[in-house]
Design a protein around this nucleic acid. Structure first.
Lengths: 185, 185
DNA sequence: CCATAGTGGAACAGAGGTGTTCCACTATGG
DNA sequence: CCATAGTGGAACACCTCTGTTCCACTATGG
């Protein structure tokens, strides 16, 4: 796994990134579309991922990893709860294509690793509980609901930039403001 | 168009409803899937909609109509702004499959009638402006952003019932509460 | 220089969806 | 009763995507 050549690692990464980008725009894209988006022959794609299901599996793992590292970077355990949640949103907002890809292609989130809570889920759970303790989060808002609302708001922000040609920073600003108010005590 | 037999009108409606239901769950469903979900032969489906693009077109129109009637029922011009928005959310929430279908199948929203603002869009625009006038809506929240957030919250609520087995009334209650707070002044 | 890793393209068979035609069946109003 | 509207299913050719095989090409380190 990790004893791959530099070249192979780079190609592998290029294919995964291209898959995210292509599928985020066109859910029904063919493997040929993905390959050419990655600047790679379809044959080469099959050398790295034998069939579509394997690509999907790797893609799922790839997305999870990106989310995990983004969550870690937000250091949710530190500072006031509202600010921590804001940092998390900013990190997730940066993921961009990854996010829209998740919404556009629900099949990828069908694996067993998406059913059970990830470390990210746990970190957010703890954060919300902390917010309940120090009265900074609406007691009616359960951790699961906060999570749903956060992703929905991020989706809204990206959609806002796409459809209404709003600059990213402005969309993010609106997103953070609305989310903060929505779940405030 | 309107001089259809009762039988044909019923079958046509059954196919459209089945298409919404099927495609909301499985974006890549085949025409055969849709036909059998409607309790109809694939041949019959082709009698009503020559090819897939015609079905998509009719589906787009169907969805728009459902949204329009829901908007009308919310009588946005009457009563306090927050309550009016709440009524709108409740009406949209009732659409259920229609909503999730829209998010699951962006292709349907690609037609020209989705680019330019619909009567529903206009009604919501006026409502938000009224909310700005009487200080009941956050002045930073533009009509377009309010719209994005509303749909995102509705999506979150439906997702919340699907994934977390939360009763619909509870999800709707959370949705209304969070939306109200998010865009309040 | 050359052995090897990495790649692209052509070609193939298989699977599944699509659109069409044709025929047999059922129900319903005149 | 029977003519007609409405339907379902089988069969068909067509298309696209898929997964695979095979061969020729390029680059790079020893």
């Amino acid at each position: 796994m990790s004893d791959e050549t530099m070249v192979r690692a780079r190609t592998r990464r290029a294919i995964l990134d291209a898959a995210v980008l292509t599928l985020s725009q066109n859910h029904g894209a063919s493997l040929g579309d993905i390959a050419s988006c990655a600047g790679v022959g379809r044959t080469t794609l099959h050398r790295y991922f034998a069939d579509r299901s394997e690509l999907t599996k790797a893609l799922s793992k790839h997305v999870l990893e990106r989310i995990e590292t983004a969550t870690v970077r937000a250091v949710l355990a530190e500072g006031p709860v509202p600010q921590a949640l804001e940092r998390l949103c900013q990190e997730y907002f940066e993921l961009g294509d990854i996010m829209m890809f998740m919404f556009a292609d629900p099949d990828v989130m069908g694996g067993p690793e998406w059913k059970e809570p990830t470390p990210s889920d746990h970190a957010l759970l703890k954060l919300v509980e902390r917010g309940h303790s120090d009265k900074s989060i609406d007691p009616e808002a359960t951790p699961l609901w906060v999570q749903q609302v956060m992703w929905a708001m991020l989706f809204a922000a990206w959609q806002h930039t796409r459809e209404n040609n709003v600059p990213k920073h402005q969309a993010l600003s609106l997103c953070l403001r609305s989310l903060r108010k929505a779940i405030a005590a």
